[in-house]
Structures are given as C-alpha cells and as structure tokens.
C-alpha cells in the first residue's frame, strides 16, 4: 500500500528552484534513503512533506489524503537532536503529547517502556546535558517514535556522530524499524549509510534540486558489518557514486 505520494511537487525560493517537479511513491513499511549533496533539495522536500513549507505546485498525499502545507502527519527528526534542556529524558520523550494535549499516565508509562527497551531506562530522570551525543539522538528518536506516526522523516539524524557511534546507531535504528514496522524516509549525504539502511535509494542532485535515480536495494536483511563489503553493496555504491560525481564535474 502506498503511504506517501508526491505528485509533481515543486518548490522555489525567489529565483532558485529548490525542488523541481518531483513525483514519488513510498510503500508503507519500507525504508527509503534519499542521498544527495547539499543544495539538492532533499531538506526542502522533507519540509514540504512535513507541512512546514507549502509546495508551489503539485500535491502531497498521505494515505491518499492531500496534506499540502498542513502539519501533524509525520514523525520528524533532524541532525540536531532538539532535546529541550529543561526537561528530563522521560519528559523529552513525551514532548509531542505535551505540545498537543495532555500527557497521560499511559503516555509516561509508554515513554519509560520504550526507554527501558532501548537501553536508556537508567537515564529517565536525567537532563539531556548529562547524555552523550549518541544517547541524545536515541532519545530524540524515541520522542519521534511515541508520536505513533506511521511515516518517519529522518534528516541526517546521525550526521553529527563519530563513525563508531554512527554504525551502532544505524544497527539500532534497523532493529527499532524491524520491531515497530514504521515507514522511514531517511536523508543522508553518506552513500554507505543510504545503502546499508534502505530498501530503496533515491539519488538527488542540485541546480535545480531533483531526483536523478531511484534504485531498488537488493541486499538481504538483516544487515551486519559484513554487508558493507558484499559485491552487491559495492555495485550499488558504484552506481550511486557515479551519479553524484557526474554532477560534481
């Protein structure tokens, strides 16, 4: 079933075409990576899908319903964890509820359960400043999870982490994705990351921002560190790299 559909969605800022007319369909439960250099319109596309920006043309449909310029239908996470320093880990996880309604005892229990399940049970009453970068990103992701949105938009969520932590977080994310069956749209400029995580790799390119390729990812799951050296991995990486570098030249 198609969860998200873009129909000729376009966005311009002044004279700059941030996103030229783009059409895209995302299957429910899939993990789709979007890779491209900065300025290729991937973040603009995210903001249009999230409803932070209204497209100049075309339609954004979630479960067949037009959602142009409206918010409240996606989970959303950026490279910046955006945890608020004045709330504990538990209260950060329940932030979306606090902002839209009342945080119930069940919401708090859910937040605690998610934190315990994914290894942050001992930090529920900590303030975010006490946590490492990787832990903070995990809290930010839990905050996204408990919004119960089917569609999660992750914009370079691990971009600020060191290589070691990043690999751990990627495997953790795949585990959570498998556990919860959400649909993930994952922006990155790291080609390895895009292939390691996804079912499908969408390549974008700048001036004007547009989709230039859409590859199905043949790699089997579960993925391990060994996945990174499989021939199929190298093969797909080569194709993506060629596209990205052709644009550079």
């Amino acid at each position: 079933m198609t969860l998200l559909e873009l129909r000729d969605v376009a966005k311009t800022f002044g004279d700059t075409i941030a996103l030229s007319p783009t059409s895209l369909a995302i299957e429910e439960g899939s993990f789709v990576a979007i890779v491209g250099p900065s300025g290729c319109g991937k973040s603009t596309m995210f903001n249009v899908i999230a409803g932070l920006l209204t497209p100049d043309g075309g339609d954004v449909l979630v479960k067949g319903e037009r959602v142009n310029g409206t918010t409240g239908h996606v989970g959303y996470m950026l490279q910046k964890d955006l945890l608020v320093p004045w709330r504990t880990v538990e209260d950060n996880i329940t932030m979306a509820k606090r902002l839209t309604g009342r945080v119930s005892a069940a919401d708090r229990e859910e937040a605690r359960a998610v934190a315990r399940q994914y290894g942050l049970g001992d930090f529920l009453r900590h303030y975010p400043t006490a946590l490492s970068g990787g832990m903070r990103q995990r809290v930010a992701f839990m905050r996204t999870l408990v919004t119960h949105q089917t569609l999660l938009l992750l914009d370079e969520p691990f971009g600020a982490l060191d290589a070691q932590t990043r690999l751990e977080m990627q495997q953790w994310l795949l585990q959570v994705w498998r556990d919860t069956g959400r649909t993930v749209l994952f922006i990155t400029h790291d080609v390895d990351e895009s292939i390691f995580l996804s079912d499908r790799v969408i390549v974008m390119s700048p001036r004007p921002g547009r989709v230039v390729a859409d590859f199905a990812n043949p790699l089997p799951r579960p993925r391990t560190v060994d996945t990174l050296i499989e021939p199929a991995f190298i093969d797909l990486k080569t194709k993506v790299m060629r596209l990205l570098h052709r644009e550079d030249a």
Binding site: A50, G51, T71, Y76, L82, L99, T100
Partner: peptide, 16 residues
C-alpha cells in the same frame, strides 16, 4: 528548528 519541530507535531502557538 525547535519551533518547527513543535509545528510538525501540530502544536498550537499558545502551547509552543
């Protein structure tokens, strides 16, 4: 970005 995140959640201006 934090204000945008609140908007994505569908938060009202008052609650934000």
């Amino acid at each position: 970005d934090l204000l945008n995140l609140a908007r994505v959640y569908g938060a009202s201006r008052w609650r934000t």
